Amino acid sequence: MANVIGYARVSTREQNPESQERELLAAGASRVFVDRGESSRVSERPQWVACLDYLRHGDTLVMRALDRIAGSEVMAIQTIAELHDRGVNIRSLTEPEIDTTTPMGRALFGIVAVFAQLRVDTIRDNTRRGLANARAQGRIGGRPSVMTERTAEALRMRSEGRSVAHIAKVLGVGASSVSRAIAKVSM
């Protein structure tokens, strides 16, 4: 049997979530999960995690406003999409357009999801083009090697018959870093 489950959150411990709880119960919530002193930008809020675990296919999650469950539009869209995939409906008491229990709410969510995917794809495409452009100019991204200044010393020790493990210990780096640096020079 499908349930209406409420979620309330206040940002500081001094705030009182009672008005949110009353609104959610009046909206038909059979159970209300409440986080106190938790930021909406943190996804691992104790009662939010418990709420997500409690929700089942066909249930409706109701909250006073979308900002109670997500601290950014990307996080909101991601959360709504994950709940949608699980068959959980979402309803906001103060934002009537956010109600996936209605045809209009589902359609609006579909449109929002398309634009969210477009945004992700555009960022990914721009990143690829930027990296390709940087490579064309001779710049290679990534973290600099810890061996940049030590390769000559590693080669000298290796020519003296020292093991890669010994060289790594002396230089204070990983053995794989030493091996890669030596292999690069040997090519």
Rank of each mutant, 00 (worst) to 15 (best):
M75C: 00
M75Y: 03
A76V: 05
A76G: 10
A76Q: 11
I77W: 06
I80K: 03
I80H: 07
A81L: 14
A81T: 13
E82A: 15
E82P: 07
L83P: 02
L83S: 04
L83Q: 06
H84A: 04
H84N: 08
H84Q: 02
D85C: 03
R86V: 15
G87V: 09
G87P: 05
V88F: 05
N89H: 15
S92Q: 10
L93W: 01
L93R: 00
T94C: 11
T94D: 11
T94W: 14
E95D: 08
E95H: 08
P96D: 08
P96T: 08
E97P: 05
I98Q: 03
I98C: 03
D99C: 11
D99S: 08
D99Y: 07
T101Q: 13
T101L: 09
T102Y: 00
T102R: 02
T102A: 02
P103Q: 07
P103M: 10
M104A: 13
G105I: 12
G105W: 09
G105F: 10
R106G: 06
A107T: 09
A107Q: 05
A107E: 04
A107D: 02
A107F: 13
L108K: 02
L108G: 04
L108V: 06
F109H: 10
F109P: 02
F109I: 07
F109C: 03
G110W: 00
G110Q: 00
G110H: 01
G110V: 00
I111H: 07
I111N: 05
V112E: 08
A113M: 04
A113V: 01
A113S: 12
A113Q: 10
F115W: 09
L118E: 07
R119E: 15
R119Y: 12
R119W: 14
R119Q: 15
D121P: 04
D121Q: 09
D121E: 12
D121C: 06
T122K: 00
T122S: 06
T122C: 02
I123C: 02
N126G: 10
T127N: 04
T127S: 04
T127P: 01
T127H: 03
T127W: 01
R128F: 10
R128M: 12
R129L: 14
L131I: 11
A132F: 02
A132E: 14
N133D: 15
N133T: 15
A134G: 12
R135M: 09
A136G: 03
A136I: 00
A136Y: 00
Q137L: 06
G138E: 00
G138R: 00
R139P: 01
G141K: 12
G142W: 01
G142C: 03
G142E: 05
G142T: 13
R143C: 12
R143Y: 12
P144Q: 03
P144Y: 00
S145P: 01
V146M: 03
V146K: 09
M147V: 06
M147D: 05
T148R: 15
R150M: 15
R150F: 03
R150I: 07
T151R: 11
T151M: 12
A152R: 08
A152V: 07
E153P: 01
E153I: 05
A154R: 05
L155H: 08
L155G: 01
R156Q: 09
R156T: 10
M157P: 05
S159P: 00
E160Q: 15
E160R: 14
G161W: 08
G161L: 03
G161R: 04
G161V: 09
R162N: 11
R162Y: 13
S163D: 07
S163A: 11
S163I: 07
A165M: 11
A165Y: 12
A165N: 15
A165E: 13
